[in-house]
Amino acid sequence: MVAYLKKTEGSEGFHQIVDFINASHIRYALTENPTIYVSLINQFWQTATARTLDNGEIQITATIDGKVKIVTKASVRRHLQLAYYDGISSLPTTEIFEQLSLMGYVTTSDKLTFQKGHFSPQ
Rank of each mutant, 00 (worst) to 15 (best):
H118V: 15
Q122I: 11
R51E: 15
S109R: 04
E57R: 00
E95F: 08
G87T: 09
Q59P: 11
E9I: 01
I88V: 05
K67P: 05
I96H: 06
F44R: 03
Q122N: 11
L82M: 03
L91F: 08
G56R: 10
I96V: 11
S11N: 06
E12I: 14
Q115R: 12
T63A: 14
F97Y: 02
I58Q: 05
I64E: 10
L102K: 13
T94R: 15
V68R: 02
F14D: 03
A29Y: 03
T108Q: 11
L40P: 01
T63P: 11
D86V: 12
N33F: 00
I26N: 15
A48H: 07
T47A: 02
S120Y: 11
T31L: 04
H15S: 11
V71N: 05
W45H: 10
F20P: 02
Q16T: 00
K73P: 03
N55I: 00
V71T: 08
S24M: 06
T49R: 15
Q99R: 14
T108N: 15
F14H: 04
P121H: 10
Q43T: 04
G104T: 04
Q46S: 10
S101C: 15
R77S: 04
L5K: 06
P121S: 12
I60G: 02
G117V: 04
F114G: 10
V76E: 03
G56I: 03
A50V: 13
L100S: 14
Q81K: 06
I41A: 02
T61A: 10
P121T: 07
A74V: 05
L100Q: 13
I58D: 13
D86Y: 15
V2R: 00
D110F: 13
L91A: 14
A48S: 08
V18Q: 07
H79C: 02
K116E: 10
T61R: 00
N55T: 09
V76N: 04
S109W: 06
S89K: 13
L53H: 11
F114S: 09
T47S: 00
I41Q: 02
F97N: 13
S89M: 11
L112V: 10
E98G: 14
A23P: 07
Q122M: 08
I64P: 06
N33E: 02
I70T: 12
T49L: 14
V71R: 01
I21W: 01
T61G: 07
L80F: 11
V68W: 06
G66L: 15
E98V: 15
Q81A: 02
V76M: 01
Q99D: 13
T63I: 12
V68K: 00
L100T: 15
S89D: 12
M103S: 12
H25R: 14
V2M: 01
Y4F: 07
T47N: 01
S120T: 13
G104M: 06
T31V: 11
R27L: 02
I64R: 02
K7P: 03
S24C: 07
Q115S: 14
T49K: 15
A83T: 03
V38I: 14
Y105N: 05
K116I: 15
S90E: 12
A50N: 04
